[in-house]
Design a binder for these strands. Structure first.
Length: 603
RNA sequence: GCGCCUGUAGCUCAGCUGGAUAGAGCAUCGGCCUUCUAAGCCGAAUGUCGUAGGUUCGAGUCCUACCAGGCGCGCCA
């Protein structure tokens, strides 16, 4: 059955291209009538063969799980059914496994061998060529390899960053920007229709503090002695905003303490700082489909409408002059105030109003990416939404821990511009956007992130981001060396079963896993899973590449003498390149075809 | 005091739905090397999975208690 994939040795045909083509290729594969064998199909075949045996033995068939063993000596596919059946059949697991192995139909499952191992595992070794044939699928899929359709095109909103426009973005926002963008990309790659949203809190008390701080600096700039409020903003950037205001309006507001004047200052400050944030994010390759302004909730009447709606639920009461909502009925630790005794709504209210708009805009699934310091608001917001009839788990949250930037074993805290922590821009202008994005995504959100500048600045393979980029560039360099283009290697152009070296087979197995890795990462909103995969795959690719170094094992080189073997290895190199590139693309990182070190440029 | 997160090799961290002998990178040690251009390659050593119980064929993974660290517990945002 494997034989039908073989193609006759191609007849040589004249080189036809403008470019030299050192490697004669077979004619483009005929329309492929042969069903391609995906890993899922292989598993299905094994599964149904197992079900047949279990039925024969009178055992339940519902619980078969197949997995890929870590240890390659445990075969290509393994199952623990015999272990799980020990109890229902009240027999020793190994004995059950022996019987299954004996009755198993190897040919029907496309398996070369099955053996019993350990406490009763069944290990299957796939027919040779079955694994390696997946390379054609990778070449065929190219930029879409790794994509899947589980999301069925449904709409999902990812809200992230949502920083107050009161100052420059810092490294914590950077983690959130990269993480949120990664989560959004994972959803996109698994078939969701993703909407990226940024919520600007442009209406709160903090904005008032900003306006007062800017006004003080503005007056100072014009020689008037006015102190910045105690709880105001003190970073250097406030002076920049004030100086820009001087340039724009000269001394118009020096003695004007009216609300109108303060409004104008506030508007000026918010506009300028928002523009700076947008610039910082844009240069960090993060962009949004929609910017939602908190102020629009008030001006559009949504906040008042939400109070009314909540009152209509009968879950609202007055106490000590304030208006409360019985959020404790929905799992919150205590009831919350919606409207203070002074008539001002608390932050809780616009928050609920905002999330109602998400639902009403058609997003039945929403993921909020936030710093873990906000976890206290999760139950509260959900409770408010439940009171209005939304489902209990709405919205979902990805909460991430803080970032520490470390250099020479010491924490970097200083930023001239903000007077406190390092800004996002300061970070990525130092280490590069690719490294910053990778480092922010390579740890699971739950864990504190230690951003080690020494490693980030290292441009060797010690830096995981460069390790992946180097592996990608190495694959590309093979093609340059062979005077070919990447596109010259097409699906069906090689006799893939010639790939038989352990390093090659290990690599192929990894490449095949790619889509399931992305699905798992998407399921857990965990871009770090992709980083981990890319790093390991790059490691395997680098080992393979280095093994073929002419000074070591020239017979393992991709550009080896045997044309057929060379074609097969080029297909593998191309497939590696595709997977690494797609993975980096998902993470929002470049996949250069060649690497230039800064040191090289200096020379 | 209550709630959430974290605790895995010297360091930074993976560990999928509970599976086989707990894995990477850095650092350390040993040996190669100048390339299918890439400060490189190959190999070795390293563990009380915070502690103590429990669940079961099987626990780093699930449950309970405790210890340590971070964060949150306003009519602040």
């Amino acid at each position: 059955m494997r034989a039908d994939r073989r193609r006759p040795t191609p007849a040589l045909r004249p080189t036809q291209a403008r470019r030299p083509r050192p490697i004669p290729r077979p004619p483009r594969a005929r329309p492929r009538l042969i069903l391609r064998r995906t890993p899922e199909m292989t598993n299905d075949a094994i599964r149904s063969a197992l079900e047949a045996v279990l039925e024969d033995m009178g055992a339940p068939t519902g619980t078969i799980t197949l997995e890929q063993p870590r240890d390659p000596t445990h075969g290509d596919v393994a199952t623990n059914v015999a272990l799980t059946l020990a109890k229902p059949l009240s027999r020793a697991p190994r004995q059950i496994a022996e019987e299954i192995a004996e009755k198993f139909d190897l040919a029907a499952a496309g398996v070369d061998a099955v053996e019993v191992a350990g406490p009763g595992f069944l290990n299957f070794r796939l027919a040779s060529g079955s694994v390696v044939s997946a390379l054609d699928d990778i070449l065929e899929a190219d930029t879409t390899w790794g994509r899947s359709e589980g999301g069925k095109g449904q709409a999902v909103m990812v809200e992230f960053v949502s920083a107050n426009p009161t100052g420059p973005l810092h490294v914590g926002h950077g983690r959130q920007a990269a993480l949120g963008d990664g989560v959004a990309a994972l959803l996109d790659w698994t078939g969701w229709k993703v909407h990226r949203e940024y919520y600007y809190n442009d209406a709160g008390r903090q904005i008032d503090q900003l306006a007062l701080s800017v006004r003080a600096r503005y007056r100072q700039a014009l020689g008037v002695d006015e102190a910045v409020p105690d709880d105001g903003y003190r970073g250097e950037y406030v002076k920049d905003v004030a100086n820009a205001l001087v340039a724009e309006v000269a001394d118009r507001y020096v003695e004007d303490n009216s609300d109108e004047a303060l409004d104008a200052i506030r508007t000026h400050a918010v506009k300028m700082l928002r523009e700076e944030q947008d610039r910082d994010l844009n240069d960090f390759r993060v962009s949004f489909d929609e910017y939602f302004l908190e102020s629009s909730l008030y001006s559009g009447g949504r906040v008042d409408g939400t109070i009314q709606d909540l009152k209509n639920t009968g879950l609202v009461y007055e106490h000590d002059g304030a208006t409360w909502l019985k959020t404790s009925q929905f799992g919150d630790q205590k009831d919350r105030v919606m409207v203070r005794s002074n008539g001002q709504p608390t932050y809780f209210l616009p928050d609920v109003a905002y999330h109602m708009t998400k639902w009403e805009r058609g997003f039945e699934r929403v993921i909020n990416v936030q710093g873990a310091d906000h976890h206290g608001t999760v139950d509260r917001v959900r409770a408010g939404l439940q009171a209005l009839g939304l489902p209990s788990g709405y919205p979902e949250y990805v909460l991430h821990q803080m970032v520490r930037v470390v250099q020479d074993n010491e924490q970097v805290k200083f930023s001239k511009r903000t007077g406190s922590g390092m800004t996002l821009r300061e970070l990525y202008e130092q280490v590069g956007v690719d490294v910053a994005r990778y480092f922010f995504q390579m740890r699971k959100p739950d864990a504190h992130l230690l951003f080690d500048l020494d490693i980030a600045l290292d441009q060797s393979d010690k830096n995981p981001m460069y390790k992946v980029q180097y592996a990608h560039a190495r694959m590309c360099s093979i093609f340059r060396k062979g005077e070919m283009e990447l596109e010259d290697v097409e699906a069906g152009s090689a006799e893939l079963s010639m790939l038989s070296h352990e390093l090659e087979l290990e690599l192929v197995k990894r490449l095949v896993e790619f889509a399931s890795v992305i699905e798992r990462a998407a399921r857990g909103s965990s871009p770090h899973v992709v980083c981990d995969y890319l790093e390991r795959t790059a490691g395997a690719a680098n080992s393979w590449y280095h093994a073929g170094n002419p000074s070591r094992n020239p017979e393992l080189a991709v550009l080896t003498g045997d044309p057929a073997l060379r074609r097969a290895r080029l297909a593998l190199a191309r497939a590696v390149q595709i997977v690494l590139r797609n993975g980096l693309t998902l993470l929002g990182i470049d996949a250069p075809t060649r690497m230039v070190r800064e040191d090289d440029q200096e020379n």
